[in-house]
Amino acid sequence: MAIVLHQFPISHYCEKIRWALDYKGLDYRLKNHLPGLHFKKMKAVVPFSSVPVLEHDGHYVQGSAAIISYLDTKFPARPLTPQASEAREEALRWETFCDDNIGPHVRRFCYHTLLDHPDLVIPFFAQGGPFWGKAFLRMIFPKLQGVMRKAMQIREPQVSESRVTLEQAIQTLSQAYGERPYLAGEQFSRADLAAASLLAPLFMPPQYGLKWPSTMPEPLQSWVDSQAESLAPFQRFYQEHRR
């Protein structure tokens, strides 16, 4: 019955599942993988190489939305999926909106700056991994950086397009929260968790579990500062619901 979360500590999609597991009060073990070395290990058990992957009782579930649905089915206490059909559908729609319009764009926009700062980003990748992880990543970083930029399309005009998509998504969420305290139903749900966790790298909450720097490199930090007011509701979710 052991639960293992295969993850990258830096990944906001993995943080989404760490939060879900903690919210439900479940015991689990983290299995931190090094970028690049995770490909074969993940493809041996799931269709794609991406994390998060939840391992439970001999089964593997891949993808943050699928994992939350699995957890709510297997461990129904403290559900993240609303029971009422209308609220459930609304929560799933908002979660999909965040997964599509925030998740990949935060990743691309942040890495566009962070990959130029290996001394900062390598400890993110290596945190909680093998003792030789940092040295290994420094050795392969030029190749890893190229692979990441190609795979995630971290180049112009895609980076600028991601910035615009992010700004629009943040404003859409801000307007929604201006009308009600939660995105779906009358309580915190997977929709709110998705929004806050996927935006978390922009405001660096301590509950994320990563050893954040005091500030991000420029020009990333200036853009984050410009979004500070709109990001405040998501910081509040961390304070109120991320123990």
Rank of each mutant, 00 (worst) to 15 (best):
A169I: 04
E186N: 09
K43R: 13
W223P: 01
H105S: 08
Q83P: 07
A191T: 12
M216C: 06
D192T: 01
H117I: 10
P130H: 03
L120N: 10
S49T: 15
P213L: 14
Y28S: 13
I68C: 04
P142M: 05
Q145E: 12
A77G: 11
M152N: 09
A2I: 12
C110N: 12
T96N: 10
A126K: 06
Q7M: 08
L231Q: 09
A2D: 14
R93A: 13
R236K: 14
S226V: 06
Y70A: 09
L144N: 00
D116L: 15
M139T: 12
D119R: 11
K134Y: 07
F237L: 10
Y177N: 04
Q207T: 07
R149F: 14
S69C: 06
D119H: 10
L199M: 11
S222E: 11
A66P: 08
P233Y: 01
F136K: 07
H56P: 12
Q187P: 02
Q62V: 06
R243V: 11
A44I: 09
A169W: 04
A126M: 13
I17V: 15
N32I: 09
R180A: 15
H112N: 07
Q83Y: 11
S214N: 15
P213S: 14
Q187T: 10
G58L: 14
G63K: 01
V224D: 00
C98H: 00
K150D: 11
Q158I: 03
A77P: 02
L166W: 00
K143V: 15
Q7E: 14
E15I: 02
P9I: 08
E161H: 09
P82D: 07
C14K: 09
F188C: 00
S160K: 01
D100M: 14
E229Q: 10
A195G: 00
L114E: 02
M216R: 03
D192P: 03
K41H: 15
R190T: 04
G146F: 00
H59F: 13
Q227N: 13
L193Y: 05
I3Y: 07
E55R: 07
Q127L: 09
L115M: 08
L114I: 05
W94H: 00
Y182W: 07
S189I: 01
R155W: 00
L198D: 02
K40L: 08
D99Y: 03
K43G: 02
I170L: 14
I122L: 06
W19L: 01
V53L: 15
S11M: 09
R163N: 07
A232N: 03
G128M: 03
R108V: 05
A135P: 09
V51H: 02
V159C: 06
S64C: 11
R180T: 14
A77I: 08
K40D: 07
A196V: 11
G36A: 06
L183Q: 03
G25M: 15
N101G: 05
C110D: 10
V224R: 08
A184R: 06
I102V: 05
H105A: 06
L115T: 05
F109N: 07
W223T: 01
S174L: 01
P82R: 03
K41E: 15
F237H: 05
E90I: 12
Y238S: 07
S197G: 05
G63N: 03
D22V: 12
S197T: 13
L21R: 04
L120F: 14
S214C: 13
E86L: 14
V53A: 14
V121H: 00
H117Q: 10
L183K: 04
I10R: 12
W19K: 01
V121P: 00
K150L: 11
E179C: 13
K211G: 10
